[in-house]
Computed example of a mutant assay.
Amino acid sequence: MSSYLLALDASSSACSAALIRAEGEHRECLARFEHTPRAHTQRLMPMVDEVLTEAGITPQALDGVAYGQGPGSFTGLRIAAGAAQGLAFGLDCPLVGVSTLEALALQAHRRYHFRHIVTALDARMGEVYTAVWHCQDDVAKRLDSEVVVAPQHVTLPAFEPDWVGVGSGFTLWEQFDDLLKASMTQHLDDLEPRAEEMAWIGLRALQNGGGKAPIEVQPVYLRNDVAWKKPA
């Protein structure tokens, strides 16, 4: 018997949806991904309809829903959270919140076979959302906390070689610490979180009992309060 999990994301300038089907050990994923700045509300649900139609199922066939819970764009996170919570609540199925940084690390691992990864997303205001990962066998293991810091304050564990940086935060490359830059073999600033990896992560979480009631899953902003500097 097949089980289905839908994932959606609007945490960056891109918008994406993915549907994963599991039957025994077999996995199949259908996905949509578009760069749609300021058009997430127009494209997200049509993408959901597209992958469901391609799979030949109705929403009632879903066993769970996952979404990119952050960190990322405040507006995008709220859009995805509202859509995911609405779907899960209406279908009476569990919801899984997936870290956008974990999904980004898994994408880099699956696409390029990187193992020691620093993810960084541009958080604006001269800061990045960042975390450090060790990836193996399609699993991204976080080595430290997800934080929002200035690029020059991003640090690496000393015991891993050959670090690779991925994510929009590395457009601020010149602002990172020289020691960190010397520890990296390369950095890719054009990768963005995708619902495809969130579907794989979400399915694993669901199968391990990680699904929650929709009301219990909330966006992760990291920066909950924006401090405005008053003129002296």
Rank of each mutant, 00 (worst) to 15 (best):
D92P: 00
L95W: 04
L95H: 06
V96F: 01
G97F: 01
V98N: 09
V98D: 03
S99K: 05
E102I: 00
A103P: 02
Q107M: 10
Q107S: 09
H109V: 04
Y112H: 14
H113S: 13
F114I: 01
R115E: 15
H116D: 13
H116K: 04
I117E: 08
I117C: 08
V118Y: 02
V118P: 02
T119P: 03
A120R: 05
A120K: 05
A123W: 07
R124L: 01
R124S: 05
M125G: 01
M125E: 02
G126Q: 09
G126V: 05
E127S: 11
V128P: 01
V128L: 02
V128S: 05
V128K: 05
Y129D: 11
T130C: 14
T130R: 10
V132D: 06
W133P: 01
H134S: 13
Q136M: 04
Q136E: 14
Q136D: 13
D137H: 14
V139Q: 12
K141P: 00
K141Q: 14
L143P: 04
L143M: 11
D144R: 09
V148C: 14
V148I: 13
V149S: 06
V149K: 09
A150R: 15
P151Y: 04
H153D: 15
L156S: 10
L156A: 12
P157V: 12
P157K: 11
A158R: 09
A158F: 00
F159S: 14
E160L: 15
P161F: 01
P161T: 08
P161E: 13
W163D: 07
W163Q: 04
W163K: 02
V164F: 06
V164M: 03
G165Q: 04
G167C: 09
G167D: 07
S168Y: 07
T171S: 12
W173V: 11
D177W: 07
D178M: 08
L179P: 00
L179S: 12
L180D: 01
K181C: 10
A182S: 14
A182M: 05
A182Q: 12
M184R: 03
M184W: 02
M184Y: 02
Q186G: 06
H187E: 06
L188K: 06
L188F: 10
L188W: 07
D190L: 07
L191E: 11
E192R: 06
E192A: 12
P193I: 08
